[in-house]
Design a protein around this nucleic acid. Sequence first.
DNA 1: CGGGAGTGCTATCATTTCGGTAGCAGCGAT
DNA 2: ATCGCTGCTACCGAAATGATAGCACTCCCG
Lengths: 120, 120
Amino acid sequence: MARTPRPGLPVRGSRTGRPIMALMDLLGRRWALRVIWELRDGRLTFRALQDACGGVSPTVLNERLRELRESGLLDADGAVGYGLTPLGRELIEHALPLVTWSARWAAALTRGRGTPRSSR
Amino acid sequence: MARTPRPGLPVRGSRTGRPIMALMDLLGRRWALRVIWELRDGRLTFRALQDACGGVSPTVLNERLRELRESGLLDADGAVGYGLTPLGRELIEHALPLVTWSARWAAALTRGRGTPRSSR
DNA sequence: CGGGAGTGCTATCATTTCGGTAGCAGCGAT
DNA sequence: ATCGCTGCTACCGAAATGATAGCACTCCCG
């Protein structure tokens, strides 16, 4: 089982320990960003979260939840399931520009069909 | 071999085709964000890029480069190697808040040792 | 008591992705 | 023609992920 990436320590693909590298490693793992995204409107139970993520396998979901909790982005409450911590909300705030931009990206890609710029 | 995620089409873990889902799938793959990040200061050759990413295997690097080119974020020039397209630069601009925030996250994590909030 | 339905979570195994090494083909300069 | 650089492919073992089944626990209702 993989270790939860932490700023200040080496992570997959980088030994510098720079926070952004740890963050990339953490959020780059499958379903990590998606889980956070699905919790943006409130708490969800394990199974509700699983459904929201299109039926992700419980193995991986549980592993991501553990990592994200260890990273201070999520918390768990036996009764109400999982939710974002204040830190997790901050992350979403700072990631929102990307959501907006993705629409521009989609438009550019759609318009750009037929002129696939140089590829050697 | 996996298909390059495109807005408007189903991607891994989501059939909605929403741009943000395609973007998450694309950038969530190993080394994708890192490759873009390493090109922030100018063009790099294949091997220079490989070194910058801490010796990523050429197999994966080549696959990421192909995906990112197909996504309009990177371009390739036989002489000067790989570089960001205007679209790729836009992505970096919109991702910069995350880089800044990652320092805050690191600080919060370091301070927070010893009070690991509820985990069931 | 005794289902039944909800909770979080584990076990198992196939599939996919990634990592690490070696090496090829092309090109320009020496 | 040999060197050094370029991008890139083949191969195979390791690691991550996907899919399914099912367990332990709690609460509630009869």
